[in-house]
Amino acid sequence: MTVADPEPLRLGGMALRNGLLVHGPTMWAASVRAPDGSIATASGRKPRVGGPVEAVPGARGVLRLGEAMAVIPLVKRALPAARLPWQDARVVGSAVAVMAGGALLKRRRGGGGVAAEAALAGLSLLPSFLALRGGELAAYHGVEHKAIGAYESGAGDARDATKEHDRCGSHLMAPLLASNVAGAALLKKVVAKPGPVSGAAVSLASIGIAVEVFAWSERHDGSRTTHLLRRPGHELQRLLGTREPTEDQLDVGRAALAEILRAEGR
């Protein structure tokens, strides 16, 4: 970039099974590879919830994630050919199995404590691992990082960027699991028989804490603590979460990036 160029937009994204969804400050854009081989693209305004809650640590993270999830039905309506990460029978089956296994562990008399909560947290990752196992989703995850990374750095084309990114959602995993295990263990000490409502409260609090840790890491980029916090996420991206995409897949990412910049007035 030259001195006269504006600061790059802060972009986020989500890999689809056949394309890429990109979030901008106010708009979303998505491109997918249609069954006939063409690239279909759409964009629209993001749902936004404002108010005092935006300034509340923890709650603001849950709010932003909720807004990101609210975009998904808009994408499906605009692009019926879009295939979401969990649109796979194995992923749905594993999610059902995890729910059943979690209920069984919770019913076991001797299965309480930190060990059981850690086992439940580990089981919860199984659907995500299966979703990435097929390769195409992992490749489009790589497209997401390479397209956004190349744009943010001004380094050139997406093919030259790395497939790992410091703002990947994988960096939420470690603080999310740790806070979930700690919160569930604490809940059992203060509530005689934790129910679904208290469990949901712990899950929401864990999400809020994880997002705050994520945001803190971005504000302190380059610190040793940030490096340690991001290490699990980078390893997850490197080993499982991302794969080097093909040129055809990169073309889909380029289309999504061009559309979000157009929609945001850049």
Results as ranks from 00 to 15, higher is better:
Thr41Arg: 14
Ala42Lys: 11
Ala42Thr: 08
Ala42Arg: 12
Ser43His: 15
Ser43Glu: 08
Gly44Asn: 08
Gly44Thr: 04
Gly44Phe: 09
Arg45Pro: 06
Arg45Leu: 04
Lys46Thr: 03
Lys46Met: 15
Lys46Ile: 03
Pro47Tyr: 04
Pro47Glu: 01
Pro47Gly: 03
Arg48Lys: 11
Arg48Leu: 14
Val49Gln: 14
Val49Tyr: 14
Gly50Val: 14
Gly50Gln: 13
Gly51Pro: 03
Gly51Arg: 10
Gly51Asp: 06
Pro52Gly: 11
Val53Ser: 03
Glu54Ala: 13
Glu54Met: 11
Glu54Cys: 10
Ala55Ile: 02
Val56Ile: 13
Pro57Ser: 06
Pro57Lys: 06
Gly58Phe: 00
Gly58Cys: 07
Arg60Tyr: 08
Gly61Leu: 07
Val62Ser: 11
Leu63Ile: 01
Arg64His: 09
Arg64Tyr: 09
Leu65Lys: 15
Leu65Pro: 03
Leu65Asn: 15
Gly66Trp: 06
Gly66Arg: 10
Gly66Ser: 11
Ala68Cys: 15
Ala68Leu: 11
Met69Arg: 10
Met69Lys: 09
Met69Val: 11
Ala70Arg: 15
Ala70Gln: 14
Ala70Met: 14
Val71Gly: 01
Val71Leu: 12
Ile72Trp: 10
Pro73Lys: 12
Pro73Asn: 10
Pro73Ile: 01
Pro73Gly: 02
Leu74Ala: 11
Val75Ile: 13
Val75Asp: 10
Val75Gln: 10
Lys76Ala: 12
Lys76Ile: 01
Arg77Phe: 01
Arg77Leu: 12
Arg77Ser: 14
Ala78Ile: 02
Ala78Thr: 06
Leu79Gln: 05
Leu79Lys: 12
Pro80Cys: 03
Ala81Gln: 15
Ala82His: 07
Ala82Lys: 09
Ala82Thr: 01
Ala82Tyr: 04
Arg83Asn: 00
Arg83His: 06
Arg83Met: 09
Arg83Gly: 04
Leu84Glu: 09
Gln87Val: 04
Asp88Pro: 01
Asp88Met: 05
Arg90Val: 01
Arg90Lys: 06
Val91Trp: 01
Val91Asp: 06
Val91Tyr: 05
Val92Met: 07
Val92Ala: 10
Ala95Glu: 00
Ala95Ile: 03
Ala95Cys: 02
Ala95Ser: 13
Ala95Gln: 04
Val96Cys: 12
Val96Ile: 14
Val96Lys: 00
Val96Leu: 14
Val98Asn: 01
Met99Arg: 00
Met99Val: 09
Ala100Val: 15
Ala100Gln: 13
Gly101Gln: 08
Gly101Ser: 07
Gly102His: 07
Gly102Ala: 02
Ala103Leu: 12
Leu104Glu: 03
Leu105His: 07
Leu105Ile: 09
Leu105Gln: 03
Lys106Arg: 14
Arg107Thr: 08
Arg107Pro: 03
Arg107Gly: 03
Arg108Pro: 05
Arg109Asp: 00
Arg109Ser: 08
Arg109Gln: 05
